[in-house]
């Protein structure tokens, strides 16, 4: 491959101009791919995940959720309250209202059937927020959790625009009395962290714990890539779907009965 570029020009003139151009373009493409691949870790991880679709070895851990909309009560918002309380978000209607998780109620106009369920960051395998972020602040951890590195965030809000789930919000004013485990400040994008510090410590995310406490058990948290885990077993047993699966972003949050 490296020899192509070193070939003397005298070999080329006999070929039609079109073929030469095609060859050159192909070579340029190869060069870009080779140059980019070793330096950028996040992309390297992404490539691993992409191979996963084709059946190659995949990451050992990918945290995810299964939300059973049939068990979720229309008038219950325990998960939303728990998230606000645990992460120190203040309920303040208007542009300052951070929505890391929200309840969505949908009705089928034809049949009239109504379902209510929480929607939060779907921790996509190929999230649009990660794609569009100009600074690399939006990133996906090796365990599948998508976060904003606020040290790098410049507050451009591309991720807010790009996310089809409206999972990101923007902090527009100074914040006081943050929780030590949930730093948030003016000029940065934010979203559900899947309670990453709880998860790392072996606990459930605050919303899932609250749903269990409320007695609904509509949310199951676990490792999608552990075939023996409760989540993977459940996903293998019942029919589930992801929201806007047509976008091909590979959400980690699965829904049942929506």
């Amino acid at each position: 491959m490296s020899g192509i570029g070193l070939e003397p020009d005298s070999d080329q003139p006999s070929e039609p101009a079109d073929a030469t151009r095609r060859k050159l373009l192909a070579l340029a493409g190869t060069a870009v791919a080779l140059t980019l691949a070793p330096g950028v870790t996040v992309w390297a991880r992404d490539l691993v995940a992409r191979r996963d679709r084709e059946g190659a070895p995949r990451a050992k851990v990918r945290y995810g959720l299964l939300i059973d909309a049939r068990r979720c009560h229309t008038d219950c918002s325990a998960c939303v309250r728990a998230c606000e309380q645990y992460n120190g978000l203040r309920r303040r209607p208007g542009p300052d209202n951070a929505q890391w998780i929200r309840k969505v109620t949908v009705t089928d106009p034809q049949t009239g059937v109504t379902r209510s369920f929480p929607v939060m960051c779907q921790h996509c395998e190929h999230g649009a927020c990660v794609d569009v972020c100009p600074t690399g602040a939006s990133f996906r951890r090796p365990d599948g959790i998508v976060l904003v590195d606020k040290h790098r965030c410049i507050g451009c809000r591309y991720c807010l625009m790009a996310c089809p789930y409206k999972a990101r919000s923007f902090v527009a004013r100074n914040v006081r009395d943050q929780k030590p485990w949930a730093p948030r400040g003016k000029g940065t994008a934010e979203g559900c962290t899947l309670c990453v510090e709880r998860v790392v410590a072996g606990k459930l995310p605050a919303c899932v714990a609250a749903c269990q406490r409320a007695g609904h058990g509509a949310m199951v948290f676990g490792n999608l890539h552990d075939p023996q885990g409760a989540l993977a077993k459940r996903l293998a047993a019942v029919t589930t779907e992801t929201i806007r699966a047509d976008l091909g972003m590979g959400p980690s949050v699965h829904y049942r009965g929506i």
């Binding site: 606020k150 914040v175 929780k179 030590p180 485990w181 730093p183 948030r184 003016k186």
Partner: peptide, 16 residues
């Protein structure tokens, strides 16, 4: 401290 909490919180004398 634009983003981080400037005082400890949580269980135990050592805070978080």
């Amino acid at each position: 401290f634009a983003c981080h909490a400037a005082r400890p919180e949580g269980v135990g004398p050592g805070g978080f």
